[in-house]
Every structure is written in C-alpha cells, then in structure tokens.
C-alpha cells in the first residue's frame, strides 16, 4: 500500500503576537514547525506502516528553502521519503489553492491508495484542504478520523461526528482527514532528524507539476486578507491583594457585585 501524507510548514502559532501599537500581527523571525494537526496524520500513517507488511509512506510539503528542516522532521517520524514543492507561498487563507497544488504534486509523485491530511491547519484553521483535494482527485473523503483499519481494496474508518461515532467503509483510493484526538504524535530525536539524508528528501518544481512560473496565481481561490484588527476583549484587570483568605473573600464579593453568583 502507498500512503502520502500532506503536511504543512507553518509559523509556530503559540509564538504569534498581535502588536497593538502597529496594529499588525508579528510573524517575522518566529520559529517554524510542522502544523500540529498534520503530526497526527503522520503518526497515524507511521502506525499503519509499522503494522503493515508492505507500506510505502511519503510526505509532501509545500514551501521554500526554510521548509526543508520541517520536512526532515516530518520524514524522521517514520516516512520513507519527503517531497518539497518549491515555489512556496505563505497564504493560510486560501485552502483551495493549497489543495490544487497538492493534487498536482500527488499525481506527480505517483498516486497513493491513501492520502492523509490533518483535519485543519495550525495557521489557517480552514478545514477545507482535505475535502478539496478529494474532489480534485475524484475520490471519497473520510473525516474526522479517530480509528483506521485499511483492507485490500477498501478502508474502514471511525469518524467522530460529535454526537455519534460512525464507522464507515469505502473503496480505495481515498482521502482521510485525521482528528487530533486519534493519537499522540511521536517526537523524532535530533539524531533521527539528522539521519534524514538528502536521498530521502526530494523536491518538486512547479514545472514538475505542469505549472508555468506565475501559474500559482491562476490556481488561487480568490481569497485575500484585506484587514487585521485586535481581537482582544477588554477586561477589568483588577488584582485582588492580600492573603489567600482575604483575596478569596474579595473575589466572592466582587462576583456578587457583578451578579454572577
């Protein structure tokens, strides 16, 4: 069985700050990483590889030079090979374009029985890419996957739909959106990452995807970020002083005053 996991190179979302004075989001010079939810997708795929006899596992990532390190980390989790699609962009708000590039990359690498994605991405949080990819590749999409059992010609997956856990079966090939609650992703050691040599990371240029330079614009879904503002809720920030008993009594009094007790 062949598996391709789509993993995204993102800015660490816990480091992103809103700069009130400048009225902008500070994104420069921040650490980058594999999008959290894609680590769950890679983990699920690595588990299948460990359990199966003949599973080939590849990771595809879009991005520039900076993404090579991230890709190696992804491969070090247990993939056979990783592919970096060059010609990167960093627009988290256009999942349609992302899906169009990934679909071409998957076709260029050689098709897979299972294409696996994280349910959402850490930066865009759209939750659209997997489904758009399934539509482009013309195959079923199962999500949010919390249990997985691939067969010869079909795959069985348990989906967490909030009020029901539904187990479904659909023919291969198919696309899966992996829920973050499915597993706890392994952390590759520095040594494991270092051991990922050049022959385990390939690059795909836009030409390999049958795209002329500048064609990325044509793939765009027509979504642009037109404005940003603070999302902070103004709070009173009253610090209650004193020993524990005193402060506790003051809080209870304040909450009564607020009418919430």
């Amino acid at each position: 069985m062949r598996i391709i996991v789509c993993a995204k190179h993102v800015t660490d979302s816990t480091e992103i700050r809103w700069d009130d004075e400048r009225g902008e989001v500070v994104l420069r010079n921040l650490p980058t990483k594999i999008s959290d939810y894609d680590r769950n997708a890679i983990e699920a795929a690595v588990v299948l590889k460990e359990q199966g006899d003949d599973v080939e596992l590849e990771v595809v990532m879009v991005g520039g030079e900076a993404a090579v390190k991230t890709l190696k980390e992804a491969v070090a989790m247990g993939a056979d090979k990783g592919y970096l699609v060059e010609g990167g962009w960093d627009d988290p708000f256009d999942p349609v374009r992302g899906a169009r590039v990934l679909a071409r990359a998957i076709e260029a690498i050689d098709d897979a029985d299972l294409v696996m994605c994280g349910l959402v991405s850490e930066d865009g949080y759209n939750g659209i890419t997997g489904a758009a990819l399934a539509q482009l590749l013309e195959r079923p999409y199962l999500a949010p996957v919390v249990g997985l059992e691939p067969g010869e010609e079909t795959v069985r997956a348990t989906l967490d739909l909030g009020d029901v856990l539904r187990t479904v079966e659909t023919p291969l090939p198919c696309v899966l959106g992996i829920d973050s609650s499915m597993n706890v992703p392994r952390l590759p050691t520095v040594l494991q990452v270092m051991k990922v040599k050049g022959d385990r990371v390939g690059t795909l240029k836009l030409a390999d995807l049958g795209l002329a330079p500048g064609a990325l614009g044509e793939l765009a879904g027509g979504v642009e970020l037109a404005g940003l503002g603070s999302s902070a809720v103004e709070r009173k920030r009253i610090v209650l002083e004193g020993a524990a008993e005193e402060a506790a009594a003051a809080l209870v009094a304040a909450l009564k005053e607020e009418g919430v007790l």
Partner: peptide, 23 residues
C-alpha cells in the same frame, strides 16, 4: 459549520471554481 459541511464546502469550491472561506 459541521464535519460534513466542511467536506461539502471543500468539494463545492472545487466543483464551482469558487472562492472559499471558513470560520
């Protein structure tokens, strides 16, 4: 928003060549 709605939105955006926004 709902799991099935995300799938519908993703598929439909491709099928219609539409601009797509979540959340």
């Amino acid at each position: 928003d709902a799991p099935a709605a995300r799938e519908a939105a993703g598929r439909l955006s491709i099928a219609l060549g539409a601009a797509c926004a979540s959340m």
